[in-house]
Each structure stands twice: as structure tokens, then as C-alpha cells.
Design a protein around this nucleic acid. Sequence first.
DNA 1: CATTTGCACAACCATCTGGTTGTGCGAGAC
DNA 2: GTCTCGCACAACCAGATGGTTGTGCAAATG
Lengths: 115, 115
Amino acid sequence: MTVAEDELSLVFSALADPTRRAILERLAEGDATVSQLTEPFAMTQQAVSKHLKVLERARLITRTRTAQSRPCALDTERLDAAAGWIARHREVWADRHDRLERHLAALRDRDGETP
Amino acid sequence: MTVAEDELSLVFSALADPTRRAILERLAEGDATVSQLTEPFAMTQQAVSKHLKVLERARLITRTRTAQSRPCALDTERLDAAAGWIARHREVWADRHDRLERHLAALRDRDGETP
DNA sequence: CATTTGCACAACCATCTGGTTGTGCGAGAC
DNA sequence: GTCTCGCACAACCAGATGGTTGTGCAAATG
């Protein structure tokens, strides 16, 4: 689990941080340099660099080495993977949910037994 | 950050663990007891209990106290929140991505300048 | 009543995380 | 050439995470 983590876990844990989500939101408005990204966040440039590294590892962003700044682009593919996983399970669950509700109601009605 | 974490972060970080995702998938097939959930996972019952606690805190599952077992139900609402966030940003990004591509191509074409 | 079963709580541990400070280095500006 | 700027790397730290073992307790089973 130390290094060989699956893509989905990387994406979800990257999204699990509010700062990182904010960074992504800001990047959605256009590419930015690290210092531009650091500005609104009340933390050091190094901390933001770390966050960018996480986003990069999750392949949510790609970074192009230009002159002296390192602007970031967004990689939608990984996001598709995450959205796909959720969407897939949401369906099943939504469906399942109805049946569960009725099932549990029925159980409650006839005094529960262990499933 | 110690305890007052936002819903979205809780959901995403709950989904960031493969074991937890597997638990959710298994639960999608029907409610299960803790020991039933523990079985396929090659870890102790206590560890699974911890995972369930995380899922519960993220409100991805709700647990009903029955006789001597604690079966789990699924709460789709939180998942909607997560899916919603992704969907919202995926749109913007997909759109943005095209424009970025062209923008960068243009920059490359006319010899780049710092953004 | 005594035993087993299903689960949670507590203590402990190694590792990860998210931040800090300090430092170095390459590229423009002077 | 020297200075400043933008960024990353390293070391450090507190707290979270993901697992373990050990234990206790409530309910079904004998």
C-alpha cells in the first residue's frame, strides 16, 4: 500500500482535500503559476507545491515546464474514472435502496431476524 | 481540521480506500452483518468495524441496531453530493480543456510567453 | 446458569499527511 | 557578474490513518 496504489484511490484521496479542490476550481478558470495558486490560500508556496504534486500523481493535472514558471493543465480523464465509479454504483444503490427500505420495513413488521 | 471536516471531504476520503469501496460494493448486493463483511477481506473484524465507522461518519451508510447484529444500509444522498461536485467540474474542465489546448498551441506557435 | 457469538472500545504501533522552515538552483532583470 | 524571483527538495513535526491485540459486554444458545 506504500506506493502501488490504484488510480481510483489516488483520485479520490486527491479530491478529499478542500485546498486541493479549491486549486482545481481555480485552475478551471485558466492555468496559473504556483505563486498565483499560493496567493489565496494562506499557506506557504511549498505547501501548495506538495498539493500540486498530489494532484499530479493522481493525474488530475499535468504540468508543462515552461520558461521559469510551471503552469498546470487539467486532465479530465481521471475525473471520468471517478465519476464513472460513483455513477455506476449510484444506480445500483438507488435501486437497491428502494428494495432495502421495503425489505427492512417488512422485517420490522414481522419482528426481525438476523439476515 | 481535526474534527470539523466538510461533508465532501469526508465522502471523498471515505471513497479513497479500496477496502471501503469493496465494502460498499458488497453492501450494494444487500445488507450484511459485520462478520459477513469481514470474511472476504483478510483482516480482523475490528479493522472492518473501523472502516464502517468511517463510512458511517461520511454518511455513506446508516446502521440499524437490530437484535445482536448491526446490518448496514446505504445512504445515496452523500454520494449524490460527490457525484454532483465532479459532474459540475467535469463540464467546466472539459470545456476549458479545449480552449486551453488551443491557447497553448497558439502560444507554442508564436514562441511562448509567461502566463 | 454457563457458553458462545457478534460487535465495539482501548491501547498500541508504523506509516501517511499536511503543514512548517531552511536551502539550493535555474532563469530573467539589473 | 550579481540580484531577485519562482519553484522544488529535504528535514522536521503534530496529528490522522489503518492495522494489530486484548478485552468487555449484550444477546442467543446450550
